[in-house]
Amino acid sequence: MSTPKLQLKGIKKKLRGRQVLDGVDLSVDKGQSLVIIGGSGSGKSVTLKCVLGLMKPDAGQVLVDGADVTRMPEPVRARNMRKFGMLFQGGALFDSLSIWENIAFRLIYADGVSRKDARERAIETMRKVRLAPEFAEVRPIELSGGMQKRASLARAIIAKPDIIFFDEPTTGLDPITADAINDLIVEQTKELGCAAVSITHDMPSARKIADEVAMLYGGKIVWRGSASSIDHSGNEMVDQFVAGRAEGPIQAVV
């Protein structure tokens, strides 16, 4: 059996006295797209932050190609980050830099690529995400939400990562733009052949980009199955979430 690209083993994290993650186990293979669904405050973002090293788990392991990144010395861990690409919920583009500098940030500042070459690669990647090159010199604030998401996607894929993470990729977008972003995510992850981990509330988005779906509830993965089996999962929490019902085992946080 081949080593999973990414594996989480018994990840636990307590925040402000609340056990947010209580032993999360997950694995993603090369070329596989996994979508984690779950209610607000269920710990989806915390899971992603633990994987990315933005938060340190209280217990458990995060294995990338079989190596535990939570125990790595900082410089080794920083080098390992080059395997990752990340699309943040709000885009998280740097306000003070132009769009092409945002997209080429890793190439210029981490990989030492010359600005001229980095700019060419940024423009090429902008074309891949259907962002017109005339926007290369503008600041993020001048772009619409959908265009910012495209720029953020371009930044995530430019260095050809092994694993891409998507945090609520369609939040705040109209349905048509959201669908276009979903198409781009599927197209680009297939082209790169990388593993993808997404977290979302948006079921149409989950259905479109997922090979498999995992449901996070009570700090644990309570169900995992193929995207096509989500409507007959046999799990009442998944059924409630997919149907969007307030009544059921999951109590709405209001």
Partner: peptide
């Protein structure tokens, strides 16, 4: 956070 994920 984005900067950290970009190895910087």
């Amino acid at each position: 956070d984005a900067m950290t994920t970009l190895s910087t």
